[in-house]
Design a protein around this nucleic acid. Structure first.
Lengths: 215, 215, 215, 215
DNA sequence: CATGAATGAGGTTTCATTCAT
DNA sequence: GATGAATGAAACCTCATTCAT
């Protein structure tokens, strides 16, 4: 009891919690409507706070947007970095990465929409997030290591650019999720259905595996 | 009376031209800023017309947005339908489709951004465009025909879902273009450079070809 | 009748009149409360216009403030330039200038308050008004000419700096008007009373005349 | 218990110091931006105290403003009263007052800006400062005494209203300082330069001396 | 005495849309 | 068909002030 400071948890005057509430509500709002379409009032309302606090903690709408971007982006980067590939063959390791790239957006549905919005804005806000630049190279380095190992043991063919591989791994999952609405409309098929998702996941792994395989 | 005819003709021509100017300016604005971020004033200004005309011709901002969407989407559909695959082997024909899916966004850069925006809005506007539904099935049918032909002559393996194939063909190109800004920032590499584009095009064809190939 | 376009005069949609109404109301508001204390809503209300028009015509609060500043300042400059000193002795001419400097603020009571506010802001807005710089030198040149003429005919003594003379001419009137409130409070005497004003006017002329006089 | 005394003393000293810090910061803020433009947050920040303390000690923004006004005004009044004119001829004594009126704002630059702001507000706050009313009459009485003495010894002419004399003495210095920004901009001459100040000081004395002189 | 967090009223500005000509 | 002027709702943001600790 004493360890937890239960009174503090329930307190309205809890800086950390207020900040988190705002960020969470903002993520939803920005992901659903984009930077321009998002409404500060709605963020405040959904965060259960006075609108003023949003400015108190984050400065303004744009700054809040960048804070959300940074949070979401760095969480994904951390998850990516924490991906355990120990004891897997190179091919299985890369398949694991494909699975991760498929499963992560499913558990964090706002990420992709946020990123789509940011790309419409030419990633100018992402550019301003100092931290990310260097960190993101890691996944590419990791892929390169796996490609080399696979080539060494003969399971993976030569001549694969790790960056393009990464882009394609992302693409087969990202595009499916980001464009689910238009694809569903266009082809009259509910691509969010459970069985469709399982199919797509297997398909994604298959595409990458066949792309890497020798012979 | 007879004198009025030419002026009327000119007026009709002007009318058409005014409409086109508005649509062109609107496409740019909506693609760059999304539906919410777009400004009616800027569309009018860049179209060189009075704002009132925009309402006269299109009814309102949302209607204009849908008109743009319909124009861009149906143009793409028409181009897709016009794709000539006569005399090609099934594998080459599908590669031709991959090339088309890569080259078209390069020539129509606003299409992808517009579609990204529409997907953020859950494609609710796309859903309202009556015409598209049935038309779009054609490309899937075509792919299915090619898959069957390829399977018959042994050049393409069995068990490929044409819809997922289509989605992946779209994905390898679309994602690259839609996410160029964030990818370029993240990896510090200018993915719009000419040589990068050539590499990516070859990569895309390669990914699909290896996915289809037997053995 | 036809010449006057009376219908236009009464029309609500009268650009010129709307602009003027805004400027007039804004002058009052800015003079009474300063840039920071002025309320855009009140300006709109007192101008009898929709608040939006204020932005339509002037861009924003600060721009409106500068427009007011420019209008008031250039009107004063023009009046100063139009001051007819023909046929007066140098001494009488300078006295005429003193009178003008006393009478003008009486007829344009907002000028001084506006200028006081602008000086609190270190004249940063005045600095941005391009036109004024060169024009204002004129009154100094004029004073210098009169001083030389007076020295030539022996009515005015040597060694008077025309700029400091101008400043003092301004001071004896300006300070009286700008500080009427604090002076009235401090000394319990209503300095805006008609007889007080007449006294002060004579006093001002006297101060300057004795300052210039030979012997 | 006895132990608490020293800490209490320190606390009282701190209390005094906190108050002074607030007043000093507030003077600067109010002088630079006026009552409306001043920001309570900035005062607190520059005073190095928590905003709440400001309310604790002074009640509110307006009360703080009046406290500043009272402090500055009474300091000036005290300095004026302490002015030692012993042993001077009437003329010299008045010149001494002119010098004082010139030198004091130089050493207390915020006074004039504060007063300018208060006059824009029609001196409503000054009016509420009970103490000042009677006290300020003293300088007028003093001037009147000097005028009479001068008239008695023939050094000063008759018929001078001591109040108008006081106003003009104030004016020749005050206006110069209060309007330095606009004057400098208007005439492109840096009126705060050391040599300019010396010139102006001599000019001010000259103006008053010639105004008083007999003959 | 002191503090960081919180508040609500009200301020400036922007927007899609419509009116009068 | 075309235009500049006008509108009201709503957006973002700021401010002096108070609360809970």
């Amino acid at each position: 009891m004493g360890v937890e400071h239960p009174s503090k948890k329930a307190s309205i005057r809890d800086s950390r919690r207020t900040r988190d509430n705002i960020l969470k509500a903002a993520l939803k709002e920005f992901a659903d409507k984009g930077l321009a379409g998002a409404r500060v009032d709605l963020v405040a309302e959904q965060a259960g706070i006075n609108k003023r606090m949003l400015y108190y903690y984050f400065g303004g709408k744009d700054d809040l947007y960048r804070a959300v971007l940074e949070k979401v982006y760095s969480e994904m980067r951390d998850a990516e970095a924490a991906l355990d590939l120990q004891g897997l063959t190179p091919m299985k390791a890369i398949e694991r990465i494909v699975e991760f790239k498929f499963d992560y957006p499913l558990k964090h549905p706002y990420l992709i929409k946020l990123l789509a919005g940011e790309n419409m804005l030419k990633a100018v806000n992402l550019k301003r997030l100092k931290s990310l630049q260097s960190e993101n190279q890691k996944i590419i380095d990791r892929l390169e290591g796996l490609l080399l190992a696979g080539q060494a043991d003969g399971s993976i063919r030569d001549g694969i650019d790790p960056l393009h591989l990464y882009v394609t791994i992302s693409a087969v999952s990202y595009f499916y999720f980001s464009n689910t609405p238009s694809l569903s409309v266009t082809f009259g098929r509910d691509l969010k259905a459970r069985s469709e998702l399982a199919d797509r996941r297997a398909h994604a792994i298959d595409v990458i595996a066949r792309f890497l395989a020798t012979g």
